[in-house]
Measured scan of single mutants.
Amino acid sequence: QEEEKEIKRLAKKFNASEEEARRAWKKAGGDPETAEKILKKKG
């Protein structure tokens, strides 16, 4: 599933848990760029 792959990639890229990545993904409405910004800010 595309979403799961994206979440795993985000978690790995930002050294975050999949739970954090999933939360960022949901907050971003499934937009990878926005999710990255959220995780970057958090990191």
Results as ranks from 00 to 15, higher is better:
residue 39 L to A: 01
residue 43 G to S: 06
residue 29 G to N: 12
residue 17 S to P: 08
residue 29 G to K: 12
residue 1 Q to R: 11
residue 17 S to F: 03
residue 38 I to S: 03
residue 22 R to A: 07
residue 13 K to V: 07
residue 40 K to W: 14
residue 1 Q to M: 14
residue 43 G to E: 11
residue 35 A to F: 05
residue 40 K to I: 13
residue 15 N to R: 10
residue 31 D to I: 09
residue 24 A to V: 06
residue 3 E to H: 11
residue 31 D to A: 04
residue 40 K to F: 14
residue 41 K to L: 09
residue 26 K to Y: 11
residue 31 D to H: 11
residue 34 T to M: 15
residue 20 E to N: 04
residue 28 A to E: 00
residue 8 K to T: 10
residue 38 I to W: 07
residue 15 N to A: 08
residue 15 N to F: 05
residue 4 E to V: 07
residue 5 K to N: 12
residue 5 K to H: 11
residue 18 E to I: 15
residue 2 E to W: 15
residue 39 L to V: 02
residue 25 W to Q: 02
residue 29 G to I: 04
residue 8 K to W: 09
residue 19 E to N: 06
residue 7 I to K: 00
residue 22 R to I: 06
residue 33 E to K: 13
residue 6 E to G: 05
residue 31 D to V: 09
residue 34 T to K: 15
residue 25 W to S: 02
residue 10 L to I: 07
residue 14 F to I: 03
residue 14 F to L: 05
residue 41 K to E: 15
residue 42 K to A: 15
residue 17 S to A: 03
residue 5 K to T: 13
residue 28 A to Q: 00
residue 29 G to S: 07
residue 1 Q to A: 13
residue 11 A to H: 02
residue 24 A to W: 02
residue 27 K to R: 09
residue 28 A to V: 02
residue 24 A to Q: 01
residue 17 S to V: 02
residue 38 I to G: 02
residue 10 L to C: 02
residue 40 K to N: 15
residue 37 K to P: 01
residue 40 K to A: 14
residue 28 A to N: 02
residue 40 K to L: 15
residue 21 A to N: 00
residue 4 E to W: 11
residue 12 K to T: 09
residue 4 E to A: 09
residue 37 K to L: 08
residue 43 G to Y: 15
residue 6 E to K: 05
residue 11 A to I: 07
residue 16 A to E: 06
residue 13 K to N: 04
residue 2 E to S: 11
residue 2 E to Q: 11
residue 16 A to C: 12
residue 2 E to D: 11
residue 4 E to P: 04
residue 31 D to L: 04
residue 20 E to F: 04
residue 27 K to H: 12
residue 28 A to R: 01
residue 11 A to T: 05
residue 19 E to P: 03
residue 12 K to A: 14
residue 7 I to Y: 04
residue 23 R to M: 14
residue 41 K to Q: 11
residue 3 E to M: 11
residue 19 E to Y: 07
residue 24 A to F: 01
residue 5 K to W: 12
residue 8 K to L: 14
residue 29 G to E: 10
residue 17 S to N: 06
residue 16 A to R: 06
residue 8 K to Y: 09
residue 42 K to D: 15
residue 28 A to M: 00
residue 41 K to R: 08
residue 10 L to Q: 01
residue 42 K to H: 14
residue 33 E to H: 10
residue 9 R to G: 04
residue 30 G to F: 05
residue 2 E to G: 08
residue 6 E to S: 06
